[in-house]
Amino acid sequence: MPKPGSAPSPAPSLASAVALAVLLTTQPAAAQDALPDSLTGTKGDPARGRAIVADRRRGLCLLCHSGPFPEERFQGTLAPDLSGAGARLSEGQLRLRIVDARRLVPDTIMPSYFKVEGLTRVAPAFQGKPVLSAAEIEDVVAFLTTLRD
């Protein structure tokens, strides 16, 4: 986890978070395991996504997960290995797991990366901001789909 006083995440994207709330509630029942549509309307960039996933202050992913990052020491053992995630899960399934993993596992420790409401005592530097912006989430999703084995 970041140390207190570490740099806050980039720019707030409240508008897109609100748009997402609409999106989530209007998904057809059959698609509840996935969020098929891009949050930004465009495809993310896998190289940027890889950098976010590996960055312990932005993506935070490797605090909990391990994955195919030979250069990264001290990966977490709290969550499934990310290797092969793109083979196990569709793009839409991956997106939903980043946006709001709690929809699938209500008591999971995996943070909901696009959530800004219903939180308690958020530190001032992070108030009203999701952990990652819509564009960052699309980058992460684009990267995860490349993890085929």
Partner: peptide, 23 residues
């Protein structure tokens, strides 16, 4: 649960003690 990451003390110290958070 608290904070932007929305985690409770118990989720780490009761449910996941003994595992590694990064190093």
């Amino acid at each position: 649960r608290q904070g932007q990451l929305d985690l409770a003390c118990s989720q780490c110290h009761d449910d996941n003690a003994g595992k590694r958070l990064a190093g």
